[in-house]
């Protein structure tokens, strides 16, 4: 089981992630909204680049869906009928890991292709990386539980 401190940190990071992603979705969907960059980076260049969308859907929407998915998995593995199911912890780590990989790709695009940095995107990438790292012990334990059950 995850330690209480780690649980709280995970919960807090997921909620902050939802906040950051919600803001990025708002900026992506409202054409008149200028992202508040506080002088760091160039959010507008990043948000208006062709990489800010996958097909018609802003990348920020995928980010928000990921954080909401993390929240659902985190909540379901701690309360309710599915509490303690190891697969939920596996999925939480796998989902966060996917977020880390895609964030790494987006950061590469920002640095090497768009030549601009969006500070909220970097914050989001850091948050999901921290969530992934914090979830790893739970993932390892869950994997062992599933493996042990399969051996029986």
């Amino acid at each position: 089981m995850l330690s209480l401190t780690r649980q709280r940190a995970l919960m807090l990071l997921i909620l902050i992630g939802i906040g950051v992603a919600t803001y990025l979705v708002y900026v992506a969907l409202d054409a008149s909204a200028e992202p508040y960059c506080s002088g760091i980076g160039d959010c507008h260049a990043v948000q208006s680049s062709e990489y800010a969308k996958i097909g018609p859907v802003p990348v920020a929407v995928f980010g928000l869906l990921m954080y909401l998915g993390l929240l659902v998995l985190f909540a379901a593995s701690n309360v309710g009928p599915l509490k303690g199911k190891p697969l939920l912890r596996v999925w939480l780590t796998v989902l966060a890991g996917s977020g880390v990989l895609y964030s790494a790709y987006l950061t590469y695009l920002e640095l090497e292709v768009i030549h601009a940095i969006c500070v909220y995107c970097v914050i989001s990438a850091s948050i999901v990386t921290a969530i992934f790292a914090l979830s790893l012990p739970g993932f390892a334990a869950a994997r062992r539980e599933i493996a042990a059950a399969a051996e029986e």
Binding site: L87, V90, V94, A142, I146, A147, A150, E151
Partner: peptide, 10 residues
């Protein structure tokens, strides 16, 4: 041993 289909599939 690595969690089989549920883990590796995910």
């Amino acid at each position: 041993q690595w969690g089989g289909l549920p883990v590796l599939g995910s």
